[in-house]
Computed example of a mutant assay.
Amino acid sequence: MELRQLEYFVAVAEERNFTRAAERVHISQSGVSAQVRQLERELGAELFDRSARVATLTVAGKAALEHARAALSAADAVRRSVDEVTGLLRGHVSVGMVVGCTVLPLFEALAAFHGAHPGVELSLTEDNSDRLVEAVRGGALDLALVGTAAPPEGVGSVTVVSEPLVAAVAPGHPLAGRGRVLLREVCAHPLVCMPAGTGLRTVFDRACADQGLRPGIALEASAAGAVADLAARGLGVAILSESMVAGHADRLTAVALRDVEDPALLALVWRDGVPAVPALLRRMRQAFGVAG
């Protein structure tokens, strides 16, 4: 018994006609008939009643049909599994990360993936979050770590970090002694921000727009460390996330924003259809401690 015999048998059963079945499997009608006859001889029973113009299943044919379909489905599953492994052995994954953001779990995941699948070529690109998301949507990137105000549409996504925005100020700044402030109080001072297109900036801009505020952005820098350093030198109030300020606690004071509820998100986004992406995504989830 061969898989092609089962394929032809299922085709005839579903088309109820040998000629249409032959067109479906792209061989001659005589070839389909011969293979089905051979299958019947091996099984010791006729599978079709050929007395009418329509090929009708016999009792034996009805009993065999479900199992034939299951066998073909299992064979397809074997092919898909092998294709996935083959892709992992010699594939390529293009990864993006938000510029100026050194996230150690990302590097740990890439290293673990490379150790498990050394034949897969990895590439890493930095850019701002908006362009990274568009690159994933368009197929230029397979997976990216981005900052965002909300899960992007049109791509797979999972949030790995969610943190509130804070205002970071140097010692001696008028806001330094305040535990919590309003957004309008922060916007009364020169600000140091990450550029438009980054997740942090998007959250901040939306919060300002909701309150009708027009903040004065004095300086912009794409790296969180640079934003923090500028603020530490007294050049403005930095808008950052809690963890970004934590590394500069000796020079900056984090002040909570009372009326900004939406957090800044760090998310993994990916496109489907790339054999190695599910395996890399599993490593990413493990490194960031995200279930799933």
Results as ranks from 00 to 15, higher is better:
5 Q>N: 02
13 A>C: 10
13 A>I: 10
14 E>Q: 15
15 E>P: 00
17 N>L: 05
20 R>M: 01
20 R>F: 04
22 A>R: 08
24 R>C: 00
26 H>W: 03
26 H>K: 14
27 I>C: 13
28 S>H: 03
29 Q>D: 09
35 Q>D: 07
35 Q>C: 08
40 E>P: 11
41 R>K: 15
44 G>V: 14
46 E>G: 15
46 E>T: 15
65 L>W: 01
65 L>C: 04
69 R>P: 00
70 A>Q: 15
72 L>H: 00
77 A>L: 06
77 A>H: 03
78 V>L: 11
83 D>K: 13
86 T>K: 11
87 G>K: 09
88 L>N: 14
89 L>N: 14
92 H>R: 15
97 M>S: 12
100 G>C: 06
103 V>D: 01
103 V>N: 06
103 V>W: 04
107 F>I: 03
108 E>F: 00
112 A>S: 13
113 F>Q: 08
113 F>A: 08
115 G>A: 10
127 D>S: 15
133 V>T: 10
133 V>N: 07
137 R>M: 01
138 G>Y: 00
148 T>M: 10
149 A>G: 15
152 P>R: 13
154 G>C: 03
156 G>V: 10
158 V>H: 01
164 P>V: 12
164 P>R: 15
165 L>G: 05
166 V>E: 04
169 V>R: 09
177 G>W: 15
178 R>C: 02
188 A>V: 02
192 V>E: 02
194 M>G: 13
204 F>R: 02
208 C>L: 05
213 L>R: 03
218 A>L: 11
223 A>W: 02
226 A>S: 13
226 A>E: 15
230 L>C: 06
231 A>Q: 09
231 A>N: 07
240 L>R: 06
244 M>E: 15
245 V>L: 05
248 H>F: 13
250 D>L: 05
251 R>T: 12
252 L>W: 08
262 D>H: 08
262 D>F: 00
270 W>D: 02
271 R>M: 01
273 G>A: 11
274 V>D: 07
280 L>G: 05
281 L>R: 14
285 R>C: 07
286 Q>F: 00
287 A>P: 04
288 F>E: 06
292 G>P: 03
